[in-house]
């Protein structure tokens, strides 16, 4: 009996010692993992700051304006295009019919590289865009009519 107790005690001591060492190693491993994560977080914070500055640089209004002129068929809104009251929106002629807008209205016209060989071509393109927009604005946008 006494032997049995002693054997149990020794076994318990050995097992608990092994577990403690295991846990210690595990903790050390986790600790290193956490430390490397912390370093990563700091590095990311620094990178984020650089990226934010780069984002500000790439989205500076002057650049966006150039890009918009080159790639989009968008023009500055005119006051007549701003609907300020619900009354300016007309009733539909055929309320049950499904409406899909003309596909050309919202899709940007992307200029192909060969389209803007010369300034003249580009001016012609911008003119054409302007003209189509004007036509559309007559259809889509309502003039202010308050009666």
């Amino acid at each position: 009996m006494r032997k049995y107790v002693a054997a149990c005690a020794v076994a318990a001591a050995l097992i608990s010692g092994a577990v403690v060492i295991q846990v210690k190693f595990k903790v050390q491993e986790k600790r290193e993992e956490v430390q490397s994560l912390a370093r990563q977080i700091e590095a990311d914070a620094r990178a984020l700051r650089t990226l934010k500055a780069e984002w500000a640089y790439l989205t500076t209004p002057a650049r966006l304006q150039r890009q918009s002129i080159d790639f989009l068929a968008l023009m500055p809104t005119s006051p007549s295009q701003v609907a300020t009251s619900v009354r300016q929106i007309p009733f539909r002629l055929n309320p049950d019919e499904l409406v899909s807008p003309p596909s050309s209205i919202l899709r940007p016209t992307v200029a192909k590289p060969e389209d803007k060989n010369t300034d003249k071509d580009r001016a012609a393109m911008i003119n054409a865009v302007h003209y189509t927009l004007k036509l559309k604005s007559e259809v889509v946008v309502l003039e202010e009519q308050d009666d």
């Binding site: 912390a38 370093r39 700091e42 914070a45 700051r49």
Partner: peptide, 9 residues
């Protein structure tokens, strides 16, 4: 505790 170093400028 492992402290996350704040990126200071």
């Amino acid at each position: 505790l492992v402290q996350v170093a704040v990126a200071r400028y």
